[in-house]
Design a protein around this nucleic acid. Structure first.
Length: 916
DNA sequence: TACACGGCTTA
DNA sequence: GTAAGCCGTGTAA
C-alpha cells in the first residue's frame, strides 16, 4: 500500500486537490451507483472522503488542507477566451454533491480553501511555494499530471487513487523531463481537454525529446528552423501561440490568500454536525465514525471520516514444493467450510490453456500456491502435475466440498481438459459482483479488490510484463508467481465474504445470483466445451466466390471514380465522394466528417451509381473478412469444432455476450449472409434444431404494463404487428396492408427501445408530425403502455435503477444528469432494460431447465450448442429429433409464468440456416 | 504494438 | 431509439 510518511519534517503539509478527486470519484462506476434513498447522488462525496481518510491513515502526523476550484471564470479565461471552452457544463448530479462535501470537510475540522478567480492548482502552487520557503515538507495529493511542475526537493506528489508517488527523480523517469521543464513540456503538447493549443502531432515523446535536446521551450523555439519533416512544419506553425500556451500551463505561485501557510491547522471536529450530515446524506460510514467519536469522546483530531475500513492484510502465503507440505494442505482443504480456488495457466483461451499451478485459500490471509509446471531456466523442482491433480480430483469433483472462485467457468473448462469435472461451486465473485451492479464494467479481481476491499493487488502485468514480451505463467519465477497466485485465492475469499453479505440484503438479487447466474455458468461451460461444427470447405469456397466478386466491384468503382483508392478506408472514400465527385453531404459522423454510412449511401444511390457498388462492396468484404475467412481458422485441432466464450458479466441488461468468435452476430438478413449460416452443421447422424421465442420483448411489455388490449392480442395468438396496425389505423385485421404492418412493426420496436417521435420519423422516413400522430394513436389504443413507460421513468429517477421481472437490477447513473442528451439516453435505457433484461432472465431459466432435462433424461444424443439472446440451438440425433423438439418447446414456453403466453418456434435442418 | 474511429453484423 | 463484438484504416509510439 502507500508508503508511510518518510518525510523529514514532523508534520508535513498535505495539500489535497479536491476538485481533481471529485471529478475522478464521480466517474468511478461503483461510486456512481451510490445515492440516498431520496435520489441525491453521493458517490463523489464518498470517493473524496475515502481519499481523505486514506491520507490520514498514511500520514498520521500530516497537516491536511483541502483545496477546491471556485465557481466561475479564472484569470486564464481572461488570457484566452477559448480556455476550457470545450468542456461540457458540470453535470447536475455532480454539482449537487459539492456543497455537502464542503460542509462535511469543514465539520471534520479540515482547512478548506476555495478561492475565486484562480484554480485549485494555483492555490496549491502558492501554498507549496510558501511552505518550501520556510523549509516545510509538502505532499500534494492530486491526480493531475500538470502539478508535476511543482515538484522540488521539498515537494512531492502522491496520487491517492493509484498510490503513485512522484518526486524529482520519478518525474524525470515518468515524463522524460525534469519538474522545471514540465511547463515547457505541457506547452508543447497542448491540452485537448482544456483547449490549450500546442504543437500539432507533438505528443509526450516528441516534447520530451526536444526538451532533452534543447533544455527549454525558449531554446526549442530558437531551433525551430532546424527541425526537419512534417513535425518541423507543425512546430513552426505553432510558434505564434506557444508563449500563450506556456502561460496557461503555468501554475501561479503568488495567489493572494486569506491565511498564511503556517496558520493552516486542523480545528476541532464538529461531531454533532457530522452526525447530522451523515444522516442527511445517508453516509453510513461517516455516521458510524462520528457516532463512535461521540461516544468515546476522545480528542478530536480530524481522524474520523467517512471511509471503508481497509482490511488489514495480514497474510500467510505458502509456496508448496514438497509432498509433506502438500499433504498438510490437502488436510486443510478437506476440513474447510469453503475453499477459494484458482488455477494458473499458460493461456486465456480455455481450450489451449495448460495448468501451471493451483492456489487455495481456506481462511482470510491463509493461502497456498502449488506450482506444477514452471519451466524457466533453473526453476526449482516441483510436485508432479498429474499426481497432484489426481489427489485434488476427488476434492474438486465433490459437490459437498464448497468452492468459491473468480470466474470459475474458465477454471472448470481448463480442468475438463484434464478430465476433472469441477463440482461444488457455491459462489463466484465475478458473478456476485455482476449481479450487485451490472453497470460497473469491470468485474475482474483487481478492480473488485480495489473497490470492495481497498486492496491493491499484484497485477498480472506487474509480474509478466505486457505486450509482445509478456511472459506466460510457466515462465514466471516462483518468487513472483507464488505471492501473486496465493493472493488471487486469498482475495477471492475476502471478496466473497464482502459480496455475499451485500447480496444477502436483497432476496431477489440473491436469487438472480444463486438460481440463475451461478448454475448457468456450468451450463455455459458445457456448451463452450462441446463447441459447434463448421463446414470449413463450404466457407473456403464462399471466400473464393466473394473474393472474385469483390475484385470486380473494385474495378467498377475505380472506373466510376476515375482513380484507384482503398475502398475500405472511409477517409479516402469521403475524399472521393464529397471532394472529387462533389456529392451532397447528407450526414456527418460524430466527429464532424461527412459520413459514408450505409443509410447515406442508400439515399445517394437513388441519384448516383457509385454508392450502390460501395454498399455491395462493404457487405461482401464484411462477410469475407469477418466470417468466411475467420471462422475456419477458429476450429480447434483437437475437437474439430469452434469453441466460443460466452461472457456472463458484460452486458448491463443481463444478456450474455459471445466472443472468439462472436456466434451471436452470424448473418441472416441477406442471401449471401445466410450461406454463412449454412456452414453451421451437425455431425453425421445428427441434425440442427433452432428454437426461438416469438416476440418475447413485446410480450414482456404486455406483462409489465398489463395493458388489456396488448394482453388480449397475445392471448388470442394474433400476429402482433398486424394487430397493432389494425388498432392504430382503425382497419379490420384482415384488411391491414403490408405498409401498415411495416409501420406498426416500427412502432412496436421503437417502443422497446424507448424511442421518440423524432426517432420514429427517421426510421419510417416520414414527417415528425405524422410519427407523433402514430404514437398518439398507439397510446390511445394501448393506454396502459403509456402509463407503464411514464412510471418506469419516474421510478428510475427516484431509485436510480430499474429492475426486471425477476429482480435483476440495472443502475442508471445518468438518469438525473443535467446534460439533456445523457439524461434522455438513460431514460431510453430505463425503458429498454426491464424488457431486454427480463427476456435475458427468461432464456437463462429456460437454458437451466433444458440442461437439467438433458442431464437427467437423455443420453449423449442431444447437445445445447448455442444461445443467441432469444434462440437456443441444439445438435440432436436424427431418430430423437421430433421427440426432443417438442420437449424443448415445452420447456422453453414454460420456463417462467407471465400474464402472457410465451410461444417458441423450432425448426429442424441439416444446418443452422435450414433450421430457421 | 496499441488505440480511436467509422463501419457492419446480430437480437 | 436498446444491447453487444469485430473488422480495416489511420495514427502515434
Amino acid at each position: 500500500m502507500t508508503n508511510p510518511d518518510n518525510s523529514s519534517s514532523p508534520s508535513p503539509l498535505i495539500l489535497v486537490d479536491g476538485s481533481s478527486y471529485l471529478f475522478r470519484a464521480y466517474h468511478v462506476p461503483y461510486l456512481q451507483a451510490l445515492s440516498t434513498s431520496y435520489g441525491q447522488p453521493t458517490g463523489a462525496i464518498t470517493g473524496v472522503l475515502n481519499m481523505i481518510k486514506s491520507l490520514q491513515k498514511d500520514y498520521p502526523t500530516g497537516n491536511i488542507v483541502v483545496v477546491f476550484d471556485a465557481k466561475g471564470k479564472t484569470f486564464r479565461n481572461d488570457l484566452y477566451t477559448e480556455y476550457k471552452a470545450n468542456r461540457p457544463p458540470m453535470p447536475d448530479d455532480l454539482r449537487t454533491q459539492i456543497t455537502p462535501l464542503h460542509n462535511i470537510i469543514e465539520a471534520l475540522g479540515l482547512p478548506l480553501l476555495v478561492i475565486e478567480g484562480v484554480e485549485a492548482d494555483d492555490v496549491i502552487g502558492t501554498l507549496a511555494h510558501q511552505a518550501s520557503q520556510i523549509g516545510m515538507e509538502t505532499i500534494i495529493s492530486t491526480g493531475d499530471k500538470d502539478m508535476a511542475q511543482l515538484v522540488n526537493p521539498h515537494v512531492r506528489l502522491i496520487n491517492t487513487m493509484t498510490n503513485v508517488e512522484l518526486d524529482e527523480a520519478s518525474v524525470l523517469e515518468k515524463f522524460g523531463v525534469k519538474p522545471n521543464q514540465i511547463i515547457d513540456y505541457l506547452a508543447l503538447m497542448g491540452d485537448k481537454v482544456d483547449n490549450i493549443p500546442g504543437v500539432d502531432k507533438c505528443g509526450p515523446k516528441t516534447a520530451a525529446k526536444w526538451l532533452t535536446e534543447h533544455g527549454t521551450l525558449e531554446q526549442v523555439i530558437k531551433n525551430a528552423e532546424n527541425v526537419k519533416g512534417k513535425i518541423g512544419e507543425h512546430l513552426r506553425n505553432a510558434l505564434g501561440h506557444l508563449p500563450l500556451s506556456y502561460e496557461l500551463a503555468t501554475i501561479k505561485l503568488d495567489v493572494t490568500l486569506p491565511v498564511k501557510v503556517d496558520e493552516l491547522k486542523a480545528s476541532q471536529q464538529n461531531t454533532d454536525r457530522l452526525i447530522e450530515l451523515g444522516k442527511q446524506f445517508e453516509l453510513k460510514r461517516l455516521l458510524a465514525d462520528a457516532e463512535k467519536q461521540a461516544t468515546t469522546s476522545t480528542t478530536a483530531t480530524a481522524e474520523q471520516t467517512a471511509s471503508s475500513n481497509p482490511a488489514t492484510k495480514e497474510t500467510d502465503y505458502q509456496c508448496i514444493l514438497t509432498q509433506q507440505d502438500f499433504d498438510k494442505w490437502i488436510e486443510k482443504l478437506n476440513g474447510a467450510d469453503l475453499i477459494a480456488f484458482d488455477t494458473e495457466t499458460t493461456s486465456l483461451n480455455y481450450m489451449e490453456a495448460e495448468i501451471v499451478g493451483v492456489s487455495f485459500a481456506v481462511s482470510e490471509g491463509e493461502a497456498a500456491y502449488v506450482p506444477l509446471a514452471h519451466d524457466y531456466p533453473d526453476a526449482p523442482e516441483q510436485l508432479d502435475r498429474n499426481e497432484v491433480l489426481a489427489v485434488l480430483k476427488p476434492i474438486l469433483e465433490s459437490p459437498k466440498i464448497k468452492k468459491v472462485g473468480q470466474h470459475l467457468k474458465y477454471d472448470k473448462n481448463v480442468l475438463a481438459n484434464y478430465h476433472i469435472n469441477l463440482q461444488g461451486v457455491a459462489f463466484d465473485t465475478m458473478l456476485e459482483s455482476y449481479v450487485l451492479n451490472s453497470v460497473a464494467t469491470k468485474h475482474d479481481m483487481d478492480s473488485l479488490a480495489k473497490t470492495y476491499l481497498d486492496i491493491n493487488t499484484i497485477h498480472f502485468e506487474d509480474i509478466a510484463g505486457k505486450g509482445a514480451k509478456q511472459l506466460t505463467f510457466n515462465q514466471i519465477s516462483l518468487d513472483d508467481a507464488a505471492p501473486y497466485a496465493a493472493e488471487d485465492a486469498d482475495i477471492t475469499l475476502r471478496l466473497h465474504n464482502v459480496l455475499a453479505k451485500k447480496l444477502a440484503e436483497d432476496s431477489q438479487l440473491n436469487s438472480v445470483f444463486s438460481d440463475i447466474e451461478l448454475p448457468l455458468s456450468s451450463v455455459l461451460a458445457r456448451m463452450e466445451q462441446f463447441g459447434v461444427l463448421i463446414d470449413s470447405q463450404q466457407l473456403a469456397q464462399q471466400s473464393q466466390d466473394l473474393a472474385s466478386r469483390i475484385i470486380n466491384l473494385e474495378k467498377e468503382v475505380y472506373e466510376l471514380a476515375g482513380e484507384e483508392f482503398n475502398l475500405g478506408s472511409p477517409k479516402q472514400l469521403q475524399e472521393i465522394l464529397y471532394k472529387k465527385m462533389d456529392l451532397p453531404v447528407l450526414k456527418k459522423t460524430p466527429k464532424g466528417a461527412p459520413s459514408t454510412a450505409e443509410e447515406v449511401l442508400q439515399e445517394l444511390a437513388i441519384s448516383y451509381p457509385l454508392p450502390k457498388l460501395l454498399m455491395e462492396y462493404r457487405g461482401l468484404s464484411k462477410l469475407k473478412n469477418t466470417y468466411t475467412d475467420k471462422l475456419p481458422k477458429m476450429i480447434n485441432m483437437r475437437t474439430g469444432r469452434v469453441h466460443t466464450s460466452y461472457h456472463q458479466a458484460i452486458a448491463a441488461t443481463g444478456r450474455l455476450s459471445s466472443t472468439e468468435p462472436n456466434l451471436q452476430n452470424i448473418p441472416i438478413r441477406t442471401e449471401e449472409g445466410r450461406r454463412v449460416r449454412q456452414a453451421f452443421v451437425a455431425r453425421p447422424g445428427y441434425k440442427i434444431v433452432a428454437a426461438d421465442y416469438s416476440q418475447i420483448e413485446l410480450r414482456i411489455m404486455a406483462h409489465l404494463s398489463s395493458d388489456k388490449g396488448l394482453l388480449a392480442a397475445f392471448a388470442a395468438g394474433r400476429d402482433i404487428h398486424t394487430a397493432t396496425a389494425s388498432e392504430v389505423f382503425s382497419t379490420p385485421l384482415e384488411d391491414v396492408s403490408t405498409e401498415q404492418r411495416r409501420n406498426a412493426k416500427a412502432i412496436n420496436f421503437g417502443l422497446i427501445y424507448g424511442m421518440s417521435a423524432f426517432g420514429l420519423s427517421r426510421q419510417l422516413n416520414i414527417p415528425r408530425h405524422d410519427a407523433q400522430k402514430y404514437m398518439d394513436l398507439y397510446f390511445e389504443r394501448y393506454p396502459a403502455v403509456l402509463t407503464y413507460m411514464e412510471n418506469t421513468r419516474a421510478l428510475a429517477k427516484e431509485k436510480g435503477y430499474v429492475s426486471t421481472v425477476f429482480g435483476r437490477r440495472l443502475y442508471l447513473p445518468e438518469i438525473n444528469s443535467s446534460n439533456g442528451m445523457r439524461r434522455k439516453g438513460a431514460e431510453r435505457a430505463a425503458i429498454n432494460a426491464p424488457m431486454q433484461g427480463t427476456a435475458a432472465d427468461i432464456i437463462k431459466k429456460a437454458m437451466l431447465a433444458v440442461d437439467q432435462w438433458i442431464i437427467e433424461h437423455t443420453e449423449d444424443d442431444i447437445k445445447m450448442i448455442m444461445q443467441v439472446h432469444d434462440e437456443l440451438v441444439f445438435e440432436i440425433k436424427e431418430h430423437k429429433i421430433a421427440e426432443y423438439q417438442s420437449k424443448i418447446i415445452e420447456l422453453m414456453e414454460n420456463a417462467v409464468s407471465l400474464s402472457v403466453p410465451l410461444t417458441v418456434e423450432a425448426g429442424i435442418g441439416e444446418n443452422w440456416d435450414e433450421a430457421h
